[in-house]
Nucleic acid binder design. Structure first.
Lengths: 219, 219
DNA sequence: ATAATCCTCCAAATACTTATGGAATATCGT
DNA sequence: ACGATATTCCATAAGTATTTGGAGGATTAT
């Protein structure tokens, strides 16, 4: 085999990794799995895609080495292979929003103006928690909270927040978090809290970054 | 428009960035452009692809915000938009070789055993240069050397090295460098030098990393 | 064994991507 | 204005990806 052919084979392998990330469903699956492992039809249901398609796309990600599986009885749980995968996918999303004006616009249309929600850095939140000066609210679905959450956080899933405002204090700062920088749940929660007279802010980034950085967690 | 649709639009934008990286020719073009700007048919010739295809793939990368162009008379020069693009593509290649066994194998088949060539770190090489204890050889094509190189490096393109061994000293350490971690030119050069009785080592990574790190350069 | 549950594989339809040669367009020097 | 050079656009053919519904496999509980 010639050097030229070997070079092409190598670049084809690199492109396989790009191909794994070249599909919106696959990127969404990685973002959901970044919250913790999930079974196939659980994922299909929560993302709103057909089971057979979800299974097929999970297999593509698995063959690219980005996901791993574990069987538990009749169910198969998929999880992200490594935190380097999460960092890599975050850098893809950051790259897209920084270099593609349409991506930046899509992010703005979906998330609204996030800077108005005064994002709190991870280190700052860790300090506020240590001093007991904050109530932290995890607005992700209950399964994701159960799989792991910021130590001391309350679970109030996004769709239950309006009905459960009475559980939160008006006197204290509230910080809400969700799946990450491109997840809409915490921004919506902060807006709802503010509209109801609470002092609320957003956590910059979400659970996967908190967890990857080795900050205090519980489950 | 519903939240669900806006979310899908956002993930479609993220996937556009993945799609830009989902093709071997496009990744190769980025690696060549990482050495410095080049015109379209210059690229087509040096990569060995048809002009119309090269132009089409350059346009894809440009529309993904990864490349910029500059017109100079009748020629159009493409260049990488930003060093963050290079970092991102390097992390894609690293991810591929770490998670895909076939990619790791393709890299080994193409490059051989690189660790046997005792790669020198960038910082270490900078010190050796400062102390005058090394001869640095740039084995990339002459145009790439002309566009920018490590300060003090000699240009001996890879395909001329065998004929120009007399220009190099037997008493001194020689360090060869090329396009980067997945480029075959410097590893082959080091092997050729060693086979001819020189004391030669490889620079870990290549010109793009040296340049991005702000180390001494010339052109 | 059998049924129930969950997942994967398969076939088919549709849509997108890649690669090519040749026509069209843009710029420059005369 | 004209020819030379460099690039992009276009039509087309072949290849690859996506999505779906339904059949087929594993595993568990009865």
């Amino acid at each position: 085999m010639s050097d030229r052919e070997r070079k092409l084979l190598l670049y084809e392998q690199f492109a396989r990794m790009g191909k794994a990330l070249a599909n919106p469903l696959r990127l969404e699956l990685i973002d959901v799995l970044a919250q913790g492992e999930r079974s196939v039809d659980d994922l299909a249901t929560s993302c709103g895609w057909k089971l057979s398609n979800t299974s097929a796309q999970l297999k593509v990600l698995q063959h690219a080495g980005l996901l791993r599986t574990r069987r538990d009885g009749v169910k198969i749980f998929y999880r992200v292979a490594d935190t380097s995968v999460l960092e890599f996918v975050e850098s893809l999303k950051a790259m897209a929003t920084e270099t593609l004006p349409d991506a930046e616009k899509a992010a703005r249309d979906y998330l609204g103006d996030v800077s108005a929600l005064q994002p709190v850095g991870r280190g700052d939140l860790a300090e506020l928690i240590a001093r007991g000066e904050v109530v932290v609210v995890d607005v992700r679905p209950a399964e994701e909270y159960a799989a792991g959450h910021i130590a001391g956080a309350l679970s109030i899933p996004h769709d239950q927040l309006a009905a459960r405002l009475a559980e939160l204090p008006k006197e204290s700062l509230i910080v809400a978090y969700c799946r990450g920088r491109f997840c809409v749940m915490a921004p919506e929660a902060v807006r709802l809290l503010r509209a109801n007279g609470f002092e609320a802010r957003l956590l910059a980034d979400g659970w996967p970054q908190w967890h990857a950085e080795g900050l205090p967690v519980a489950s």
